[in-house]
C-alpha cells in the first residue's frame, strides 16, 4: 500500500512519515524551496478549514504532485499548530484531521481498514461470517465515545473480552484513536523557531481569530455565587450542609472543590456554610484549606458527573435537561451563568 494517494489521504501513517524521510526532504527545503510553495499553502488551508469547518478540507489528488503536496502539508499544519499553542485550537485541529480521515476511511475495503488500524496496534480479529470486527475491550474503552449511550460497553455485544463492531463503528474507533494520537503529538512537541519565523504572519492572524472566538464563548463566572444557577446535586448538598443534615464526606468534598473551582476564597466558602446549626469554623476552615490546596500539595478539582454518580451523590431523580446535556457540574453552572 505504498501508493501516493493513500499516503496523501492518511498522512499520519508511519509509511507517510517514512516517505518524507526516504526522499530526504529537509525542513529547510520544505519551508523555503519554491517547489513546496503549494504544500505550505495547503498547510495553512488545513488550519483555516479546521477553524471554520471542523474538517481540514478536500483537495484534488489527481496527480503525484497533488498527492505529495497534500502529504507534506500535514506536518507543516501540525508544526504551526504547535507554535500557535492554544489548547482549544489544538483540540479542534486534531478533531478536524480525524474527521477528514474518517470521511476517507468509511469508503475503504475491509483489508485496508485492518491495515490502517495496525498503525494503532489494536488487538482485533475479523469475523468473516458475520462481517464484524472484533476488538478487545481495552482498545474499545480507550477509543470509543462511551459518553453516548449506544457506545457504552453494556450496549455492545461482548464475548470473551472481544466486542463486535460493524465496519462503520470500527471506522469511528479509528477516528478516535487518530484524534488522540494527534492530540498527543501536539501536546508533546515544542514550537520550532524556524517555523515560528516562516509563518509569523499566519500564526499571528490565526491566534487573533482564536482569541476572539474564545472570548465569545468563555466569560468565566467568578467571585460571588448565584445559588439559583447551581446544578441540582450542588443545590442538594448545600441545602443539606446549611440545614445541618449529615452529608457524606464525598458530598462535602465535592461542594468545596466546586466552590474552589469557581474561585471563591476560604472565607466566602465558610460564609456559605456558616448558617449550619452545627457549624464549627476551625474544623471547616481546615477542611476547606486542605481541599483548595492552601495547606496541602494539591488543589482538588470538582468531581465530574460520572464520579458524583459513582458515589451516589447525584440526585438522579432531580436531573434536568441541562444535566443530561453536560457531564460536569461546573459546565452546568457556567452555561446557566452565561445565559442569564
Amino acid at each position: 500500500m505504498t501508493d501516493l494517494p493513500v499516503l496523501a489521504k492518511y498522512p499520519f501513517l508511519k509509511e507517510s512519515k517514512n516517505y518524507v524521510k526516504e526522499n530526504e526532504i529537509s525542513i529547510d527545503e520544505l519551508l523555503n524551496d519554491s517547489i513546496y510553495e503549494r504544500a505550505r499553502l495547503i498547510g495553512i488551508e488545513r488550519l483555516d478549514n479546521a477553524f471554520n469547518k471542523r474538517d481540514v478540507g478536500n483537495r484534488a489528488l489527481a496527480t503525484d504532485y497533488d498527492c505529495i503536496m497534500e502529504l507534506l502539508s500535514y506536518p507543516i499544519a501540525r508544526m504551526i499548530t504547535v507554535c500557535i499553542g492554544d489548547i482549544y485550537f489544538k483540540r479542534s485541529y486534531a478533531l478536524s484531521e480525524a474527521v477528514h480521515s474518517y470521511n476517507y476511511l468509511i469508503n475503504e475495503s475491509t483489508s485496508n481498514l485492518i491495515k490502517i488500524s495496525d498503525e494503532f496496534k489494536f488487538n482485533i480479529k475479523y469475523d468473516k461470517n458475520n462481517k464484524k470486527f472484533l476488538i478487545y475491550f481495552t482498545d474499545y474503552l480507550k477509543n470509543a465515545p462511551t459518553r453516548y449511550s449506544q457506545w457504552k460497553m453494556i450496549n455492545r455485544v461482548m464475548e470473551n473480552g472481544y466486542i463486535s463492531l460493524s465496519s462503520k463503528d470500527f471506522t469511528r474507533i479509528i477516528q478516535e484513536a487518530l484524534r488522540s494520537r494527534i492530540n498527543n503529538e501536539l501536546d508533546t512537541r515544542k514550537c520550532s523557531k524556524i517555523i515560528n519565523e516562516s509563518f509569523k504572519s499566519d500564526i499571528i492572524r490565526l491566534s487573533k481569530l482564536i482569541e476572539k472566538h474564545r472570548k465569545k464563548i468563555e466569560i468565566e463566572p467568578m467571585g460571588s455565587l448565584d445559588e439559583n444557577k447551581l446544578p441540582p446535586c450542588m443545590k442538594e448538598i448545600l441545602k443539606s450542609i446549611q440545614s445541618g443534615e449529615n452529608v457524606p464526606h464525598m458530598g462535602r468534598f465535592a461542594m468545596v472543590a466546586f466552590l474552589n473551582s469557581l474561585k471563591l476564597n476560604t472565607s466566602e466558602i465558610l460564609q456559605l456554610f456558616s448558617t449550619a446549626p452545627d457549624f464549627e469554623e476551625e474544623k471547616s476552615r481546615y477542611q476547606v484549606e486542605h481541599i483548595s490546596g492552601k495547606t496541602s500539595s494539591t488543589s482538588y478539582t470538582s468531581p465530574g458527573c460520572d464520579k458524583m454518580r459513582s458515589y451516589g451523590i447525584c440526585p438522579t431523580e432531580k436531573m434536568d435537561e441541562l444535566c443530561k446535556r453536560y457531564r460536569h457540574p461546573l459546565t452546568y453552572y457556567k452555561v446557566k451563568w452565561r445565559n442569564k
Binding site: L141, S149, M158
Partner: peptide
C-alpha cells in the same frame, strides 16, 4: 465503564 457493564447501568 466496566462497572457500568457489570451493574447493568444504562442498558438499553
Amino acid at each position: 465503564e466496566i462497572v457500568d457493564y457489570i451493574t447493568g447501568r444504562d442498558l438499553k
